[in-house]
Design a protein around this nucleic acid. Sequence first.
RNA 1: GAUUCUUGUUGGGCAGUUGCUAUCCAGGGAGCUUCUCCUUGAAUAGAGGAAAGUCCGAACUCCGCAGAACGAAGUGCCGGGUAAUUCCCGGGGUUCCCAAUUUACGGGGACACGGAAAGUGCCGCAGAAAAAAUACCGCCCUGAGCUAGUCGAGGGGUAAGGGUGAAAAGGCAGGGUAAGAGCCUACCGCGCCAGUGGUAACACUGUCGGUCCCGCUCUAAACGGGAUCCCGCUACGGCGGGACAUGGCAAACCCCACUUGGUGCAAGGUCAAGCAGAAGGUUUUCCGCAGGGUUUUCCCUCGGACAAAGUUGUUCGCUUUGAAUGCCUUCGGGUAGACCGCUGGAUCACAACAGUAAUGUUGUGGCGAGAUAAAUAAUUGCCGCCCGGUUUUUAACCGGGAACAAAAUUCGGCUUAUAGACAAGAAUCUUCU
RNA 2: GCCCCCGUAGCUCAGAAGGAUAGAGCAGCAGUUUCCUAAACUGUUGGUCGGAGGUUCGAUUCCUCUCGGGGGUA
Length: 132
Amino acid sequence: MKRFGLSSKERIKSKNEFELLYSSGEIAFSSSKKFKAVFFIQRNSDKNEIKAAFAVSRKSGNAVWRNRVKRLFRESFRLNKGALYESVEFKNASLLIAFSPNSVNQTNRKKIFLKEVLPEIVELINQIKAKI
RNA sequence: GAUUCUUGUUGGGCAGUUGCUAUCCAGGGAGCUUCUCCUUGAAUAGAGGAAAGUCCGAACUCCGCAGAACGAAGUGCCGGGUAAUUCCCGGGGUUCCCAAUUUACGGGGACACGGAAAGUGCCGCAGAAAAAAUACCGCCCUGAGCUAGUCGAGGGGUAAGGGUGAAAAGGCAGGGUAAGAGCCUACCGCGCCAGUGGUAACACUGUCGGUCCCGCUCUAAACGGGAUCCCGCUACGGCGGGACAUGGCAAACCCCACUUGGUGCAAGGUCAAGCAGAAGGUUUUCCGCAGGGUUUUCCCUCGGACAAAGUUGUUCGCUUUGAAUGCCUUCGGGUAGACCGCUGGAUCACAACAGUAAUGUUGUGGCGAGAUAAAUAAUUGCCGCCCGGUUUUUAACCGGGAACAAAAUUCGGCUUAUAGACAAGAAUCUUCU
RNA sequence: GCCCCCGUAGCUCAGAAGGAUAGAGCAGCAGUUUCCUAAACUGUUGGUCGGAGGUUCGAUUCCUCUCGGGGGUA
């Protein structure tokens, strides 16, 4: 597996997985409340896999803005997922995560850049890593 | 030269690193081994002019048979273009603006632009009256009466004037009259018909336009014929002639002409996986000196009647079924994975020819996304563009900015949103010759 | 993706096959009552009828475009 890649196997794609995540998952917020992450930890699993999703509500902006936010999330996750894999393999667990914007939308932040998104995603990943 | 508007084109470029999707090639591994799957690497390609809104039109799909009548919906000057259109091009008409001004000629814009003389309905307030005109003020004639006047109850005539209104029953001039009026006349206007030009819408020219009836294959205020009324002239035999009758609204109902079956890629098809059925309703037909079997109060086929279901607005008509693992309605259960459809086409670029143009024909060359919780990205450097600041004001450095917006079966239009750049045209202003 | 609906006062809704002062309830404000409050009663404020064009003498109503919200569909 590539160290900094993100293949389609590492993405949540089925409706069942989304229902499991949103019905019984926990929520973590970044310190500025700009972003949030919903995550579900399955303990004593033999798969040791991590699956991520990037969800942006339709009300927060138009298609161009939503696509950009999702791509920035994906880029941030792709570069920083290594620490999570170490914990998952050590604890023998599986993990599902969905990242979403919380207070940020197109009207209050028309242009958004990676240097704003990346530190807060890293913070969220560290919060989740502490709970495994 | 500046500003504004319209139309068209364009919608930053190059390189590096790390990723994603598709196609293809190579290596490794697994299996049910001419095939499929997993994994690693290389190459190539990877959002728009509107991809948007979903307002029109098609291709394609299945249902179904589309046959008729009625209904419903849509379209509406004429011609052309197109696969087709509520689109585009050209022309006509109406209307507005500019310039000029008496018009005309000229330039530009807008227009859902069939029918109001088939019928129905509506036209608030104001006004006398709003569509068969019951005359408010006024004008004119007449005049009971008495207080004898610049009086005037009542009766009649009058749509020229006033006032109201979005709109007042063709306009204007002359004649005429008691006062007036298409009451009469000229010109303009309205409409029918004919001729000329035009494919046509329409334009120009000319004739005609009382009332009733008949005719012309339909229609007729006006084309033909007859009757009748009125007016004028008359040599009394006739001859000549006739103001024009109905405001607006059809994006009110409606009439006329034309068009339209529904459904929309979550259409539709194949494979895999998976589950659980239940309740209710409906129909145990009839006839036939038709044919066959033959066990002859039986069964099958055929024809007819009847019933049920379907035919996605209704009726007729049509199709299927009539006892079976049926049909209909309601409730409930399971799955939401893969593949096809899925991108080469009314295709794109260039050139020539035809055409006023939209567009078409021919030739040459090209292949340019195919995702599905949904790829097409992130970041760094340099160049180019714009803004601000500093300094040695030609330049350099520093900081900031660059619109609207992302395919989802595919095309053709329309509409709406758009920073900047380029080209062409028009209008206005200024400067020079 | 496709197909449909709805926008009227601060809130929930009426209204019409075009006529102008657009209604009702709740809420708000003022008053009566009460020692004070609530309740009750009386009066009153508040609307460019989502936005822009068009038809018409006249549009909340009819037509077109547009903005926002909601629903259905394997």
